[in-house]
Amino acid sequence: MEALYAITTGVLTACGVYMTLRGRTFPVVVGLTLLTYAVNLFLFSMGGLTTHGAALIGQNEAYADPLPQALVLTAIVIGFAMTAFSVILAMRSRGDLGNDSVDGSRTDRDPDQDSRRESKA
């Protein structure tokens, strides 16, 4: 289970970093969201992974560390609020600046669109 968990976290992080480095606001927001998911998973596992164990002492032989669960709840709430804010901000910048490039510059065109336009011409 550890291997699967680690691979999932790793893939999420890699996708998140890749998307965050894109030049348009929408992929960046999606990337940040993925990154938050990965971080939450990582944070959840930091007390060690326990199966079939409640976060209560004395109920069972195995018990899970309750602190990471509390921390990850906090992190989820904060991450959710931040994502909501960045979506609103991305829309505002689309409206104010007239395009969805991170730098807000019109010259920064999508190469796909450019090549399509060229092929039409």
Binding site: T20, T25, V28, L32, L35, T36, A38, V39, F42, L43, S45, M46, G47, L67, P68, L71, A75, I78, G79, M82, F85, S86, L89, A90, R92, S93, D96, L97, V102, D103, G104
Partner: peptide, 29 residues
């Protein structure tokens, strides 16, 4: 315009920073 543009960079950078902070906390804990 300048504020929205500067703000976007500021927010994205700090969100990435927060993720790093949480990873560091995870490793240390």
């Amino acid at each position: 315009k300048p504020r929205v543009q500067a703000g976007l960079h500021y927010v994205v950078l700090n969100l990435a920073g927060s993720s790093l902070f949480l990873i560091a906390l995870g490793v240390l804990y």
